[in-house]
């Protein structure tokens, strides 16, 4: 039966986290049941305060074969990391 249900990706915002994080996927006939199923499958140990679900088919992913062209150019460009600035004391913790 579950093979007829579409796949959903589940994102949970934790007790102290600011962002929803991807925690896994599940099958459900529609969004409402995907939320319920996510509640039962992924928040049994009080992991979350908010759930997002999205149809897996709605996600566009980068292709593994394009890994080189996409990411290699960022290699050896350490100057892109904002670690060369002196932070004035008045700015406090960043």
């Amino acid at each position: 039966m579950s093979s007829e249900w579409p796949l959903w990706e589940v994102f949970i915002r934790g007790q102290h986290g600011l962002n929803h994080r991807h925690v896994g996927s599940l099958h459900a006939p529609d969004a409402e049941m995907a939320i319920r199923n996510a509640r039962d499958v992924y928040t049994r140990r009080k992991e979350g305060v908010s759930i997002w679900v999205v149809r897996s088919s709605e996600i566009t992913a980068s292709s593994p074969s394009e890994k080189g062209p996409l990411f290699d150019p960022a290699d050896s460009k350490i100057y892109r990391h904002p670690s060369f600035f002196d932070i004035p004391d008045e700015a406090g913790h960043m």
């Binding site: 039966m1 579950s2 249900w5 599940l26 099958h27 459900a28 199923n37 039962d40 499958v41």
Partner: peptide
């Protein structure tokens, strides 16, 4: 149960 998701929900 008919699906893994239902299985866990019922066990809960």
């Amino acid at each position: 149960a008919p699906a893994l998701e239902e299985d866990i929900a019922l066990a809960n």
